[in-house]
């Protein structure tokens, strides 16, 4: 009956989002009066999950699952859910979890709610609040199936530490034909990815050209942030396509989003609305972004950004 949570890792190390979904699973388990079981796939150290409410960890180590495969991972999670008799399975909103979730829903014949932003408001009927209409509204959704899958929106629930410890148990699911083979991966390993980032520094057409991205990179560096851009910037080839955020690009749900030289078109805002705190730096006080932002600086990026970098360095040095 325990709540099952898939806690993701990368190169053997649990990701921050793993602790967030574990915290969420703990909240659900408390409502249902049960325990939390986590499943990890090729993760090395899983003991820290105990600090976020996990009671037991099913550790899968399988060389076939070395690179992510939605079907294979969904099969492993399905078998863990069946073994534990879980009625609720908690996933994150990482690209990988969103990829495997609908397959898992079919395997478990479970209703699935994605982009969930809060603990269930009721357990019978099982009802969760999710964001919809590109964050322009919230939807209360009831899941009526016996088994339920909840995809938690990144940074929406936060981390909740408890004092506890998790026991580890080796688990060997049987994996059928994977169907899809990864031929090559092209990924900047030294950079913070937009999906994992707590802070995102984003530049728009107001920056005039790719040669001016040095200061964006540097600001991101000082803050430990990921870099992103508006769509025209990637269309013009100033920045790689993977950095484009918005309705047709990557969604951003960071704690802090800093928009520099971005006007704030509705299609851009659609993708970044889920970010908690928004800062805009723009020469034009009429730019629509000022209506969406929490903090704003009306000023020239070429003056404001270098000065902000210096001041942030001084601030960080004091911390």
């Amino acid at each position: 009956m325990s709540v099952l949570v898939y806690t993701e890792s990368e190169q053997g190390k649990l990701k921050k989002v793993a602790f967030e979904v574990a915290s969420y699973a703990k909240a659900v388990a408390d409502q249902l009066g049960t325990t939390v079981t986590a499943i990890t796939i090729n993760a090395n150290d899983t003991s820290t999950l105990g600090n976020y409410g996990v009671d037991k960890v099913l550790t899968v180590s399988n060389s076939e699952l070395e690179t992510f495969n939605a079907k294979g991972y969904a099969e492993a999670i399905q078998q863990a859910a069946e073994k534990e008799g879980s009625k609720v399975v908690v996933l994150s909103s990482s690209a990988n979890s969103k990829y495997l979730a609908p397959l898992l829903a079919i395997f478990l014949n479970a209703g699935y709610a994605s982009n969930v932003i809060a603990a269930p408001s009721s357990s019978t009927p099982f009802t969760v609040k999710r964001s919809a209409f590109t964050n322009k509204a919230f939807e209360e959704m009831a899941i009526n199936t016996d088994v339920k899958i909840v995809g938690v929106s990144n940074n929406a629930f936060g981390l909740v530490e408890t004092s506890g410890s998790a026991t580890a148990e080796a688990f060997s699911p049987s994996i059928t034909d994977l169907g899809i083979k990864v031929e090559s991966v092209d990924k900047a390993s030294d950079k913070v990815s937009i999906a994992d980032a707590e802070i995102v520094v984003s530049g728009g057409r107001g920056l005039k050209g790719p040669e001016n991205w040095g200061m964006i990179e540097e600001l991101a560096n000082v803050l430990g942030a990921a870099t992103a851009c508006s769509k025209p910037v990637s269309d013009l080839g100033w920045r790689p396509h993977g950095e484009h955020v918005g309705q047709t690009g990557k969604p951003v749900a960071s704690n802090l989003y800093i928009a520099i030289g971005i006007s704030g078109a509705i299609q851009h805002l659609a993708g970044i609305n889920a970010s908690k705190v928004k800062v805009v730096i723009n020469t034009d006080p009429e730019a629509p972004f000022f209506k969406a932002a929490d903090y704003g600086v009306v000023g020239d990026a070429f003056q404001v950004v270098p000065e902000l970098i210096e001041k942030l360095k001084a601030f960080k040095a004091q911390q």
Partner: peptide, 18 residues
């Protein structure tokens, strides 16, 4: 398998702090 129960719009945002 699932049903929409209710929709809600986010609370209006306060003005930007300049």
């Amino acid at each position: 398998e699932t049903a929409s129960v209710k929709f809600e719009k986010p609370a209006p945002k306060g003005a930007v702090k300049l």
